[in-house]
């Protein structure tokens, strides 16, 4: 019987080897290992065997079964693998075809600049204050030490709405409005972004509407050296660690002393180029110590309080930052322009 089992084994192994797919392999399994298969048949005759032979035949039968089983499983696995491989090959795609576009919009560069600057000052403890674009003469001029007929009103050509109402020419009126709210108690630390209007013909460098960011810090014991400190922190954080600052005396009716802030030119590193008109410096904002009249009109005692204010043009910052050469781009809303800022 042992020989018979061996014969069956060898015969089955040939069939396994010949099987070409899972199906025929299954046939082999049923044919040899099934309940009606020849091995089972052989086993049925084991009762007739002697006590000595029986375990030997039994062991052989198990060995043959296991061997066959193993072979079939191995072969099965090989077929499965081949099948998967085939499927994967069929499913292969051209990964270089363009992906499905996810449309992304963009933030207007002026908004980008405003938010970045807001964040820098928020980090230094400032709050963001806003005010109306149609202002009264009082807030836009008088409370800022620009009484009627002050020569410096000529610096700002104004769109009047009525004898007392106007399109604000600066974001500075928010200074007085905020100081009033503080009722004479410091500290006041605000920056005020917003649109302003002046009677300018629109061209590459002028716009009848533009954006400013005003800043104000009022408290006891504020010195001009503090203004330098805040500017240094702002410039390094906004323009980069390697930028130098320089203050130049200037004039604004609402500050005294007044100063213009220059930063070292990034393009030439200070040696002079076209962007900085050969000076190595670029003017970025106007500033100064708040004029006592302005403090007084905002309800603060100039004997006790002092402070500084500054104002910057957002378009100018954006033009410097992105190298934009025509201010009208900001207001034309050409998507070929706007789209460039979608990753900003």
């Amino acid at each position: 019987m042992i020989e018979r089992l061996q014969e069956l084994h060898d015969e089955a192994m040939i069939k396994v080897a010949e099987a070409e797919d899972l199906n025929s392999l299954q046939q082999v399994r049923i044919a040899y290992l099934g309940k009606k298969g020849p091995i089972t048949e052989v086993m049925k005759g084991m009762g007739k065997l002697s006590n000595e032979e029986r375990p030997l035949v039994g062991a052989k039968a198990n060995e043959v079964r296991q061997s066959l089983q193993r072979m079939i499983e191995e072969k099965e696995k090989a077929f499965e693998e081949a099948k998967v491989l085939k499927q994967l090959e069929e499913e292969s795609i051209d990964v270089t075809l363009p992906g499905r576009p996810v449309t992304k919009g963009s933030r207007h560069p002026l908004t980008s600049v405003v938010e970045t600057i807001e964040d820098v000052f928020i980090g230094m403890g400032f709050q963001v204050a806003e005010g109306p674009e149609v202002e009264t003469d009082y807030y836009n001029f008088e409370s800022l030490n620009l009484p009627k007929h002050h020569p410096a009103r000529d610096m700002q050509d104004t769109f009047f709405v009525s004898s007392d109402l106007l399109m604000r020419t600066q974001t500075s009126p928010v200074q007085t409005r905020t100081m009033e709210k503080h009722q004479g108690k410091g500290p006041v630390k605000i920056i005020c972004p917003g649109k302003v209007y002046r009677r300018d013909e629109d061209d590459a460098t002028h716009s009848h509407q533009f954006m400013q960011i005003e800043g104000l810090l009022v408290d006891e014991g504020i010195r001009m050296s503090d203004l330098k400190g805040i500017f240094e922190a702002f410039v390094k954080s906004y323009f980069g660690e390697d930028r130098e600052i320089r203050l130049r005396p200037s004039y604004f009716p609402f500050t005294e002393p007044s100063a213009e802030l220059d930063i070292s030119c990034a393009i030439c590193g200070g040696s002079g180029c076209r962007t900085c008109k050969g000076t190595g410096w670029i003017e970025v904002l106007g500033s100064g110590m708040v004029h006592p009249n302005v403090l007084r009109m905002g309800g603060f005692d100039p004997e006790k309080y002092s402070g500084f204010a500054f104002g910057m043009g957002v378009e100018r910052f954006a033009m410097l930052k992105y190298g934009i050469d025509d201010i009208r781009h900001f207001y034309t809303n050409d998507t070929r322009f706007l789209d460039q800022f979608k990753h900003e």
Binding site: K104, G105, H108, T111, N333
Partner: peptide
């Protein structure tokens, strides 16, 4: 922005 709109700024 994430919906795909560009921000415009125009004159008042």
């Amino acid at each position: 922005e994430s919906c795909g709109l560009h921000e415009a700024v125009s004159y008042s």
